[in-house]
Simulated scan of single mutants.
Amino acid sequence: MKALSVGMTLAACLAVRPAQAASPAVSAAETSINLSVGVMNTQYHENLTPGDDESGTTPGFGVSIGALLPTHPGYAASVDIYSALIYNFDAGNIGYSGHYLVSGAPLTATDHSVFNRVEARLGLGFPLIGGAESIPFLAAGYQAWNRNIDPKGAIGTDEFYHSGLFGLGYKLDVPIGAGFVAFGTGEVLALAGGGITANGANFSGGFGVTPEERVELGLNDAVSGRFHLFATAFWEHFNYAGTRPQSYGYNYYLYEPFSTTTQFGANFGIGYSFN
């Protein structure tokens, strides 16, 4: 009878304390399509003397779609499948402080810059006690910067930087109220397969592999039914490895130097959950 009582007590505990499942608030926030607007500040520096520097803030918008779905629907204990596709576009004027391509004389100008970034994620979601969700993921994508500096033809203008993105990330979602979710994401990526094309100088070259780090924090609030409002703040840092010198005219070589870029900003948007 004693053994039976212990067995019944254990079964009762398991019945009232099932394994964790994804929080409805987290599932709704992640399984949605989103539109956003925002601003991004760019700080660019070439590791060269004399070098080029750029800084300024540009407006932009973003579109994303994601899903957090259980591998075994209907079970209390279920690892979730996480996926997301994210696109961001920013464009506007930022300040250029550099030098003329051939003479090296100082020059202050305007860069009519255009930034594009797309990222795909695939990972696993692990529900935690309290409804939080731990999500490690793989990431791959593409980023580009179209650098259009005035005056045309005076520098290596109309430069197009581009690179593939490959790496790992981790996201943590924490429900902090009815329909209210706080989240944070960290990524370590490799820039690979990238390069530069400078139409103004008829020059192009490939980059080596360099790192990119990105951190994002945000809040998501289910304000009305399936509609959500959200706000995010991000910071990212990356390097472009530069190119090898190439012959450019008589006794002159042209190359893209190693550079460092830091970008940070904020986005505000609306989402529709289809979970």
Rank of each mutant, 00 (worst) to 15 (best):
V223R: 01
I155D: 01
P151L: 05
Y75K: 15
F238Q: 02
A182V: 07
A120Q: 03
G92V: 12
N148T: 04
F258E: 14
V79N: 12
N148V: 01
L122G: 05
F227A: 10
A28T: 06
A120R: 00
L69G: 09
W235N: 11
L219G: 07
L10K: 10
S32C: 09
A140C: 09
S64Q: 15
R214D: 02
G56E: 10
E187A: 07
G269N: 03
D52N: 15
A29H: 06
D52W: 13
I270H: 07
D53Q: 14
G66N: 11
F89H: 08
S134I: 10
I270V: 15
Y82T: 08
P50E: 14
S163I: 02
K152E: 13
W145T: 03
Y253G: 06
L35G: 15
I86V: 09
G225R: 04
N34R: 15
L191P: 04
Y161C: 04
G74V: 09
Y252G: 07
Y240V: 07
Y250I: 10
G125A: 00
L14A: 14
G56D: 10
T197M: 11
N93M: 12
Y100W: 08
L172T: 07
V6A: 13
K171L: 09
G92F: 11
L229G: 05
P24R: 13
A67S: 14
I196E: 06
Y87A: 08
R214Q: 06
T31S: 05
G141H: 01
Y170G: 03
S134T: 12
A233F: 09
L189C: 01
N267K: 12
D150R: 08
S224V: 13
L85N: 05
G60E: 02
E119S: 01
P151A: 02
A28P: 05
F203I: 06
A144W: 01
A12Y: 13
I94M: 10
P136Y: 00
V16S: 00
G271C: 07
D53N: 15
F183G: 05
A15E: 15
K152Q: 12
N34A: 14
G271W: 05
G51S: 14
A192V: 15
N146Y: 07
D111T: 03
A84V: 11
E187V: 04
G92S: 12
G184V: 06
E159L: 12
S78C: 09
E30T: 07
Y253H: 06
V79E: 11
A154Q: 08
T108V: 07
T197Q: 13
C13A: 13
A154D: 07
L138K: 01
G62H: 12
D80K: 04
E46L: 11
D80R: 02
E159G: 14
